[in-house]
Design a protein around this nucleic acid. Structure first.
Lengths: 216, 216
DNA sequence: TGATTGCGGAGCGAATCGCTCCGCTAAGGA
DNA sequence: TCCTTAGCGGAGCGATTCGCTCCGCAATCA
């Protein structure tokens, strides 16, 4: 038997996942109608849970930060420094961290969010430091590089395109191709003799993500 | 002295580059007003050159396919198989091939475009075959994987976000960080003992990109 | 200098936006 | 079993943004 509460919880989860999907496809222009439709939920139901579009996006941001931190903790708990780091990256990519970059500069950043972001930075720094000391990470790869890698891999243009064309039959193949791509990119982090171009990016790029002022 | 013709040509180049930039940031929702504004050109001037928005996007697609094919020819001309492949990928990423995926399924695909796309597929296949036979490419990396890698790296979320926040001072650092990221991803293509997950994607995924029917 | 080219942007109708409100279905209580 | 009511879906609101047209005016050519 499905109680009211069950339906509500299922709808809420569907809404959050749909919001991530639509954000990944449409970026900052993602509309609430598209999110509700993707979730298979009426617009009215969305607005009973979230007073405004911004409130939904803030909730999404907090959940995303929580996932980042939990994944980093799990990675640190792994005795193998490389396995821990790789699992962290993979988890963040699969969660869809990268799809949130369009709203990172658009939502009001609460004190809670910037505190969690700061903590997440520290955890990633530790993951990187541990992997580098163990010699399983390219010496010139920084935490900023990994953060950007996660963001860059967050979207799946091919999956988006196929879905818009209604080629649902090819979606599994596309998802698998994407998984291979992520594996390739992660392998690029392992030690190699080829130096990366340019100087390592400073911390300013990283810590600024959730704390910089909104565009007026 | 700047003649009328000079101004027209400069404007046309600015429009095409602006279109790529805005497409990378806003995806399929990119507006002509945003493109013209980014190019520093009036909307009227844009519409004298291109009758409709679709015509601009088609021109962009053809230029993109041309660049792909020329970059692949240059890569094949390089006696070093790995250097040729890496230069091809880097050139396509820098050109912004990835930013066109939102319109690939939206514009009317002409016979000319699908012919060029088919030729581009053959060139990439040859680049991959050559590199693999030379032993400078992971044995389980396919042409599809490389095509997806180019598409995935085509956007630069961090640069977009910083620009929207008006942090132009950080743009050079962000661009450099992106260059490092591309280098990391390309390095992942080199031979390694770690097998990629899943089975190699079939050609259906690849050749379908510019030839599949439009969504009704 | 007069003719003319072509640039920039105000403004058009149409489409889409975020959001409100309400009829109606179906779960809960007796 | 039947009434109550929680809560879902979507029509429709005003505001905004869309693609695109048209024209006044500055700058170039003859």
């Amino acid at each position: 038997m499905t109680t009211r509460k069950d339906i509500a919880e299922r709808n809420d989860r569907a809404l959050l996942q749909a919001a991530r999907d639509v954000l990944a496809e449409d970026g900052a222009h993602a509309s609430v109608a598209a999110i509700a439709s993707r979730a298979g939920v009426g617009i009215g139901s969305l607005y009973r849970r979230y007073k405004t579009k911004e409130e939904l996006f803030q909730r999404l941001s907090v959940l995303s930060l929580d996932h980042w931190n939990e994944a980093a903790e799990r990675g640190l708990a792994d005795p193998d420094p490389w396995a821990g780091l790789a699992a962290f990256v993979r988890s963040c990519v699969e969660f869809g961290q990268g799809s949130l970059s369009p709203i990172a500069g658009a939502v009001e950043v609460t004190r809670e969010m910037s505190a969690k972001a700061r903590h997440g930075d520290e955890l990633l720094d530790e993951l990187v430091r541990r992997a580098r000391e163990a010699g399983v990470l390219r010496g010139d790869v920084t935490a900023v590089d990994i953060s950007l890698l996660i963001e860059q891999l967050g979207r799946s243009p091919l999956v988006d395109q196929l879905r818009k064309q209604g080629r649902d039959d090819l979606l599994p193949a596309a998802a698998e191709a994407r998984r291979r791509l992520v594996a390739i990119a992660i392998d690029g982090l392992r030690p190699g003799s080829r130096p990366l171009p340019g100087s390592p990016p400073g911390g300013e790029l990283f810590t600024d993500r959730w704390s910089s002022p909104r565009q007026p």
